[in-house]
Design a protein around this nucleic acid. Structure first.
Lengths: 173, 173
DNA sequence: TTTAACTTTCAGATATTCCTGAAACAACGG
DNA sequence: CCGTTGTTTCAGGAATATCTGAAAGTTAAA
């Protein structure tokens, strides 16, 4: 499949940002391609278009499916898998953010809880330090809880909240 | 400096999460150490405590200073630099989030704007695809703008907002 | 059961990132 | 102005992460 320069640029940029977003370049490029593609693509088309190994496509797509960002469809009389990406950008971002929270925040909360628990039995560590760990845990938990509540809000409500911006301050004042 | 097991565990965990957070292991460990340490430490103490090369400490501390997470103090009659970390966890997290937004979001917004601009001149790319790029840009800009407004809110207001959780829905209904 | 089309696995090659240690550099006291 | 103490730079080595391609696995039609 031939890419237009504009699309190519998007895909390349996605690939460059991949590292910072915690996924490999291939995964990001494939996701960008499927997200932009007007119709579902086969693994072979993807490999050819992006010039990456066929096996790389398999592995990457598997990861994208685990993220629940890509799904499979089929064409009558064709055994090949046709892959398509979630098109609703709101959902895409939400899925990515959930994933990052799960991988980056939750394990830390877990560890900090254990550290705080350890602290009860530990008489070497200065109180001041234990308190610092505890307050860090508390704050992260609070942020984390807020995120979950925001996520649980219906989309129109959240949109309204976002559009209000700092004006909410007046309302909740 | 000898670390208590609880503190050691925190520091090791920080180091493990480092990769996912976009910094090197050393930077994360040094930050954790300075954050928890009751008093400022010299570069030599840090190197010895964490068993990393002295030069590594220099480079890492420089990075932490650029992030504005670590500062220098001095002791009368001692030429050495004593390093200390920001202790206010709220600020620490805010600084980190700002940095990540700057490195992970802003360049993408920039590129997407250019892609959308390119699209005007580009008659190869299907309209559907151009629209998808545009709506992605729009949504990311909206999220990004919201983040900035939230950041601009005074801390007590933000705290109140967080504690309200989904209850804001009723107020802004 | 065989064949052909498709997909996945995985060991090794490649690329990237990170860390070390030696050497250069800077600043101060004597 | 020299020696001491402290800091930084950077080339090369070590550790990770990523990608490839050949081989094995799967499935469905004949």
């Amino acid at each position: 499949m031939k890419l237009t320069p504009t699309v190519q640029r998007c895909i390349l940029h996605w690939g460059e940002m991949a590292g910072r977003w915690g996924v490999s370049r291939s995964v990001a490029q494939i996701h960008a391609l499927l997200y932009l593609a007007p119709q579902p693509l086969t693994a072979d088309e993807i490999a050819e278009t992006l010039a990456v190994a066929r096996s790389n496509v398999s592995v990457s797509i598997k990861e994208l499916q685990q993220w629940d960002l890509v799904s499979v469809t089929h064409v009558l009389g064709d055994r090949r898998d046709y892959f398509q990406a979630r098109k609703d950008i709101w959902e895409v971002i939400a899925v990515i953010m959930d994933g990052r929270k799960k991988r980056e925040i939750d394990p830390t909360v877990q560890t900090l809880r254990e550290c705080v628990a350890d602290g009860k039995r530990d008489h070497e560590t200065p109180e001041e330090v234990k308190e610092r760990i505890a307050s860090m845990l508390e704050f992260i938990e609070e942020l984390s809880g807020w995120y979950e509540q925001i996520r649980a809000m219906p989309r129109p409500t959240l949109l309204k909240l976002m559009r209000m911006g700092t004006k909410v301050a007046k309302v909740i004042g």
